[in-house]
Design a protein around this nucleic acid. Structure first.
Length: 425
RNA sequence: GGUGAGGUGGCCGAGUCGGCUGAAGGCACUCGCCUGCUAAGCGAGUAGGGUGGCUAAAACCGCCCUCCAGGGUUCGAAUCCCUGCCUCACCGCCA
């Protein structure tokens, strides 16, 4: 959620912000609501003040044994007026709130301005793709030959975009999870969390999945619960409705969870293989910090995610997303893109974002500054650290050998009984 | 799922037949005093949000709202009524 004061005072800046995000919205209704809201508020509060005063007088007069029927009647009428105005105010505030929840976050000045992914900027590249002396195979062919992914049975059990992972594939996925969690908790100072993966509507609203992106979510209609699309949702919301001490910040959380996405807008995209699934595993990184440290924390968070790819010896590059390509809640995003030999290009494997106070406003997560003064909204950050399924794909494709085997990255071998490669039967 | 009890400030806890209780008392914390140091003692202070005035902005002053949430009764509700949520206990079921 944006600062209502900013909307009130700098509506033109809001307009140009929306424009750089490719959003065309008429904000005149929003401005009108804000003006009307304050008119009614001032009016109704004045009436309430009079009623409070009058009621006090009634109490005093009664105690003194005086008659006060007239005053009571007057207060009763006043009460009815207040009731009507309150109802009007509630309608306006509901509309205003609905508007506010639909507006995206404001990009930081350092974000490149652009229309779509073509305007994203390469920040740095790490590693060199292996020169394969043979035609690289896609991960689905490698995996089926090794009997570690079963696409048909995934569809049988659920529907398309579900996959069964088995044997050494499942063990490799589990190794990836443990390797990443160990790295982030032992080396990067994150606290491991095992959160609910069904959350309520308020929690989904807190991080920005609702109300605008309901179509992308799985929900349990009977229970007002939603399957999380990312552990960002429960982790970031851990401190919803709380006021933290500045000394407690920054908070670093990591979690492994399954994630669920309906992929509503992705019909036909990446249908082969395991790149885009309705259910996938991910290790997530989340930070809450004071706003002045936000951008530095984003660099650190991104580095933590990069470290995973470096230790897995997977070539990647870091992209700064442009204004037109960023997510709804983000003020600045770095995508990590891993090299995929068969596709002969880099594909997204992690997305690291700073959400400034956008989510904190929705969640009402604040901190008490050490210097004193009023509580301030925290700054929230999140990043994949990293997606398990896509890491598995990257390992299969980058580690493939001419004999059909796949070399296991050294960092994972302690988690695989020192197995060096998965070989076909 | 059933029955019973309960949800008050950072924590504990009081709130009488509805009004002077945004909330007694205690603890904790902050500042000051006192003390050779510590402890004790003394004094003062310590919720959040909204909005109006003043202001460059604050500070400051006023008003409104908040005693789990939402509704109701009333001139007036922490206090009465209804609904929901949550917590605890027992029963049922269960990985």
């Amino acid at each position: 959620m944006l600062d209502p004061k900013w909307i009130r005072e700098q509506i033109d800046e809001v307009r140009s912000m929306l424009e750089c995000r490719n959003m065309d919205l008429d904000l005149s209704e929003l401005s009108a609501l804000e003006v009307r809201r304050r008119e009614i508020l001032v009016d109704v509060e004045a009436r309430k003040a009079r009623r409070n005063e009058g009621s006090k007088t009634v109490g005093a007069k009664r105690k003194a044994g005086e008659n006060c029927d007239a005053l009571m009647e007057e207060m009763r009428c006043l009460g009815e007026e207040i009731k009507e105005l309150d109802a009007e105010l509630e309608r306006i505030e509901r509309d205003f709130e609905a508007w506010m929840l639909k507006l995206p976050n404001r990009p930081l000045p350092s974000v490149p301005v652009g229309k779509n992914e073509e305007d994203n900027v390469v920040v740095r590249t790490w590693g060199t793709p292996r020169a394969l002396p043979f035609e690289p195979k896609p991960h689905w062919e490698i995996a089926e030959a090794l009997d570690i992914l079963d696409f048909e049975r995934g569809v049988k059990l659920a529907e398309s975009r579900f996959t069964v992972v088995k044997g050494l594939g499942a063990k490799l996925a589990r190794a990836l999870i443990n390797f990443m969690l160990d790295l982030h908790t032992n080396e990067h100072g994150f606290m491991e969390i095992n959160p609910p993966i069904l959350v309520n509507t308020a929690t989904m609203r807190g991080t920005g999945q609702l109300p605008k992106f309901a179509e992308d979510q799985y929900r349990c209609a009977n229970d007002d619960l939603w399957l999380i699309p990312t552990a960002e949702v429960p982790l970031t919301n851990l401190h919803a409705e709380e006021i933290l001490d500045e000394a407690e910040l920054p908070k670093h959380y990591t979690a492994y969870t399954p994630c669920f996405r309906r992929e509503a807008g992705a019909a036909g995209r990446d249908m082969r293989g395991m790149l885009r699934q309705h259910q996938f595993d991910k290790v997530e990184l989340v930070k809450l910090c004071a706003p002045q440290n936000g951008e530095a924390e984003l660099e650190h968070l991104t580095n933590c995610a990069e470290k995973v790819l470096q230790l897995l010896e997977l070539p990647y590059r870091v992209m700064a997303l442009c204004t037109g390509d960023m997510g709804f809640a983000s003020a600045k995003t770095y995508d990590l893109e891993v090299w995929l030999p068969y596709q002969n290009c880099y594909r997204e494997i992690s997305s690291c974002s700073i959400c400034t106070d956008f989510q904190a406003r929705r969640m009402n997560t604040r901190y008490r500054p050490e210097a004193g003064g009023r509580p301030q909204y925290v700054c929230t950050l999140n990043g994949s650290g990293i997606a398990i399924g896509r890491a598995l794909i990257a390992i299969l494709e980058n580690g493939q050998n001419s004999d059909g085997s796949v070399t296991i990255p050294r960092a994972l071998r302690p988690y695989m009984r020192e197995l060096e490669a998965i070989v076909p039967h």
